[in-house]
Amino acid sequence: MGNAQDKSPGSGGGGGRSPQATAGSGARSRGGGSAEKPQTRRVPGKGAANGTQRENTPAGGQQEQGSPAVDTSYLDAPAGALPPHLARLKNAGNHLFKHGQFGEALEKYTQAIDGCAEAGIDSPEDLCILYSNRAACFLKDGNSTDCIQDCTKALELQPYSLKPLLRRAMAYESLERYKKAYVDYKTVLQIDTGVQAAHDRVHRITKMLIEQDGPEWRVNLPEIPAVPLSVQQQHRDKPISAEVAQARAARAAHEEASRKDAHFTLLKREGNDLVKKGHFQEALEKYSECVALKPDECALYTNRAICLLKLNHFEEARQDCDTALQLEPGNKKAFYRRALAYKGLQDYLSASSDLQEVLQLDPNVREAEEELEVVTSLLRQSLMDTTAHTPRV
């Protein structure tokens, strides 16, 4: 038990969120020839094209007495350059999407797109957002083909818009059109290198394409467009939403925690290896670095106590064992190694007490039995020497 160190421990388009994107304009194109107006599917109980909704209301249209009023203030939030009745449709779609009602959200976005065409509104940015948001609904409902068409329309309106590119890439991937998906993911990463989903999927698709086409897989790829530097700079300068900032902060914290865990595991393993080789001073330094990273891990203090005992730093070893026992009051190793520290400090009574504690916790610890015999003998000898040197009165 005295030299055994503890093993070092072994060391991931968004559902549930608003599908807001950047930029758009124009009616939706189907198939080959002229642009067709998308069909609007009406949902019973939902408002007409003026964007109003009747939620949680009885059939008669009157709100029940005593029932809480439904907060629909989100409907009146500004929505780019859209007029109020179309802004309400877009906001209603965002609200429905956020609550997982993708089919109903799709209807709202479709009504807003139709309303723009009827009103002659030519705002590429706003239409791009509507097409991109509707594409998110198609993607959630497993309709990858229509998702691709809406994303392509959004990108015609606002080239290099990030979210339509990312959603189209996901739709291509779901249809196993991996080369096109790869191109869109790589384009996304030119605009924003921080999109982790794009990194992960590029890595996965690359392995699949190598298996499929061999070492010359790049030859068969469509051309990857070069995103203009002005677009990249514009994206970097664009203010980010609170939601995006929070997601980035969470990702950064996760990455930092993973980095710390990996470094900690490496240091602890190195410390353990150095103890086995008898390099106690170097091991002591490794464990001290570990303590700085994770000061609440009991094993670090019992491991470091081994090094201190071997270096005859008995008081420091005792202190580390005290800390370990504060963290884990029933830790046998801490009691045993503190007994050795007390022995080194010639406090044989305290050493005996700790060894008896070890044997009470586990009567089968042979090292503790043997050490107790030694300490008892030293204690007896110490008492005899004290008596011999005490003058008689």
Rank of each mutant, 00 (worst) to 15 (best):
E176V: 06
L300H: 00
L266S: 11
G103I: 07
T193F: 03
Q53V: 13
Y336L: 10
D273M: 12
A250K: 15
A324L: 12
H279N: 10
P222S: 12
N303E: 00
L189N: 05
Y160S: 06
R88H: 02
S230M: 08
L284S: 15
P295I: 05
V195K: 13
Y185A: 11
I121K: 11
A341M: 07
A169Y: 01
G32P: 05
V202G: 04
E223W: 00
L162K: 06
A324G: 03
L75E: 09
A135C: 03
G14I: 04
P215S: 09
G12T: 14
D184Y: 01
N3Y: 12
P391H: 04
D192P: 02
L162H: 02
E243S: 08
G26Y: 01
G66K: 10
Y160L: 13
R392I: 13
I191M: 13
F335A: 11
A198V: 10
A136Q: 07
D347S: 12
L157T: 07
M1K: 02
R251S: 12
R269H: 07
S258W: 02
H389N: 01
T22G: 05
T22A: 14
R167L: 07
V375K: 04
E156K: 12
A283W: 10
A242H: 12
D273N: 12
V231M: 11
T72Q: 14
R251F: 03
N94D: 13
R392L: 13
K140F: 04
L378Q: 13
E270M: 06
A21M: 00
N331G: 06
E176T: 13
H203A: 09
P78H: 13
I210D: 14
A249D: 04
T302P: 14
S161N: 05
P215F: 06
P83Q: 12
R134K: 07
E371G: 00
T145A: 05
D146R: 01
T40E: 10
Q111Y: 08
S353K: 05
A79W: 02
V393A: 09
G93L: 07
K37A: 11
E328V: 10
A135T: 08
Q246D: 13
M170C: 15
E118V: 11
A154W: 00
L267H: 03
E107D: 14
E223R: 11
N312H: 11
Y287R: 02
H235A: 15
Q326V: 12
Y160R: 09
H235I: 15
C298R: 12
K186F: 12
L309E: 01
Y348C: 00
R337S: 08
A299F: 00
T193M: 10
S241P: 11
A171M: 14
D122T: 03
D322Q: 08
A136C: 01
E328M: 00
V183L: 04
S258H: 01
G16P: 03
C307V: 02
D76W: 09
L325Q: 07
E255G: 09
Q101T: 07
A339P: 04
K90F: 11
A154M: 03
D146E: 14
G32K: 10
L349A: 05
D320R: 03
I148P: 00
P228A: 15
V374Q: 08
Q381C: 11
A388E: 06
E255C: 04
P44S: 06
R167H: 02
D385K: 13
T40P: 13
L361Y: 02
R17T: 10
K332E: 07
L89Y: 06
N133T: 00
R380W: 03
Q360E: 04
T302N: 05
K294N: 09
L229D: 11
E371L: 08
T386W: 04
S29G: 01
K207T: 07
